[in-house]
């Protein structure tokens, strides 16, 4: 005879242990479940894919380390895609911690020890070429190659700071920063995160304010993503896409339906879908961390559903539905 009351009042640590096992095991035994991209993610991918060197996008690293597992793969995937299309990317952050994460995300794309990455050329390194008048991307790359530089094996291309990429970083009161960037990016960020003069950067000269930006992808674990909609979309018509945690995703479907945002990546699944699209589009050699995380998430969801079912079986079998019981298991 099962003691249902005892079963319902099981020590929570057993449940925690089961979750831990389910989270760890798929890292060793890969399932490789197929991920089918949703329309919400596909629309972001298609927009980025339609852009080129004459366009520019913002990626807002608007999250803290807490939601890194969900948000970071999104940022890395979009950054990788944009750089592969030679779309200039401005990176901002709502918090100082977000800037650190942005640097880490960018570093993972610029790590040439890993095949399929990009070679980062800092602003100071190509100064002589700038002085010689090479500011257009094609001529700069030609001159760079002519000067004897060659891509390491497996690298996908060069990323010139100031032409392809600029880390603007963190500024306080970010809502006001987005508001100000609607008029001028350089007044908000006179320099980038490394102290380089932004007004000298070719990518800023071609895109002076948010009206000249083709997309802002904000990656957030809080309502920080709304700054871009409130001060970007509604004021200057900036197209905005969201990359938010799975819990938050349900909050933002109205914005997709009303056309206020281009699309949305919801949680790790959203990031995995972007990685799959990117891989299918030939922009990456393999899928990334989010896709690998899908196995873990699948099993964790199944386990939680099992908990719900078992909890209900015990609840009804034990006849607790006929009793007045306090909530929270007390």
């Amino acid at each position: 005879m099962i003691n249902w009351e005892k079963f319902l009042n099981i020590d929570r640590r057993w449940l925690y242990l089961l979750i831990a096992v389910v989270v760890i095991v798929p890292f060793f035994i890969r399932m490789g479940l197929p991920v089918v991209p949703s329309d919400e993610v596909r629309s972001i991918y298609n927009l980025v894919d339609s852009l080129g060197p004459d366009n520019a996008i913002f990626i807002g690293w608007d999250f803290d380390p807490g939601t890194e597992a969900e948000n970071q793969p999104m940022g890395v995937a979009v950054l990788r895609h944009a750089l592969d299309r030679h779309v200039p990317v401005f990176i901002t952050a709502v918090s100082p911690l977000g800037q650190g994460l942005a640097e880490q995300g960018a570093a993972s794309v610029f790590d040439t020890r890993i095949p399929g990455n990009f070679v980062y050329v800092p602003w100071a390194e190509w100064e002589p070429f700038r002085a010689a008048g090479y500011v257009g991307r094609d001529s700069l790359e030609s001159a760079w190659k002519a000067a004897g530089n060659s891509l390491p094996e497996g690298a996908r291309g060069w990323v010139f700071e100031g032409v392809d990429f600029a880390l603007l970083g963190y500024l306080p009161y970010f809502g006001l920063v987005v508001l100000g960037m609607g008029t001028s990016i350089a007044t908000q960020y006179p320099t980038d995160a490394y102290g380089n003069n932004l007004r000298e950067m070719p990518m800023l000269r071609a895109h002076k304010n948010l009206r000249e930006i083709d997309l802002a992808v904000t990656l957030a674990g809080s309502t920080a993503c709304m700054y871009w909609v409130v001060y970007g979309t509604s004021r200057v018509g900036l197209p905005v896409a969201f990359g938010v945690t799975a819990v938050m995703a349900t909050d933002y479907y109205p914005y997709i339906q009303s056309g206020q945002i281009v699309g949305m990546m919801g949680g790790l699944r959203g990031a995995a879908e972007y990685e799959v699209l990117e891989h299918e589009g030939g922009h990456t050699e393999t899928t990334g961390k989010a896709y690998r995380g899908m196995d873990v998430q699948s099993l964790a969801h199944i386990l939680i559903i099992l908990f719900v079912i078992l909890g209900n079986i015990a609840y009804f079998a034990g006849g607790f539905h006929k009793k007045t019981a306090l909530k929270s298991g007390r």
């Binding site: 319902l8 099981i10 929570r12 449940l15 925690y16 089961l18 979750i19 964790a300 386990l303 939680i304 908990f307 719900v308 078992l310 909890g311 209900n312 609840y315 009804f316 539905h321 909530k327 929270s328 298991g329």
Partner: peptide
């Protein structure tokens, strides 16, 4: 979430 699902999500 796992713990809350087991204890509080009842039909």
């Amino acid at each position: 979430i796992a713990s809350a699902a087991f204890r509080a999500f009842r039909a």
